[in-house]
């Protein structure tokens, strides 16, 4: 479930990155790569778990599934927080600088 949620997040981000014109300003590439990196790593984790559990991998208990769903959503939220931090620190549109120093044009 964690892998599935992260893959969906990565795919949605990539579609938005492709469609929007402000991909550089919004640092959308960074968000895409964060989610794709995590998806690839969880894929390896899933393959190793599948090798251990075989068909049992696809029939998790409801409690495990709920826990994994919460984890996936929390991981997706953390990815967004990391991206926001990068965006505000790098501040490509100088929004933070202009707001803090009330720069007048």
């Amino acid at each position: 479930m964690t892998l599935l949620i992260t893959v969906f997040a990565a795919a949605i981000c990539t579609a938005v990155w492709y469609k929007t014109d402000s991909r550089e300003e919004m640092k959308l590439g960074t968000l895409c790569l964060i989610y794709w990196g995590a998806s690839l790593m969880w894929l390896v984790d899933a393959v190793s778990e599948f090798a251990e559990l075989k068909a049992g991998y696809f029939t998790p208990s409801p409690a495990d599934m709920l826990n994994d769903t919460f984890l996936g959503l929390s991981a997706a939220a953390l990815g967004l927080v990391i991206w926001l931090a990068v965006l505000l620190i790098k501040d490509p549109k100088n929004v933070v600088k202009n707001t803090l120093f009330k720069r007048k044009n």
């Binding site: 992260t6 790569l33 995590a38």
Partner: peptide, 20 residues
């Protein structure tokens, strides 16, 4: 930098999973 972003981003989220 693309590789860095994938490795750091993935590792960051996986560390969160391990803490979880």
């Amino acid at each position: 930098k693309w590789l860095n972003n994938m490795l750091w981003g993935g590792s960051g989220l996986l560390v969160f999973e391990h803490i979880w």
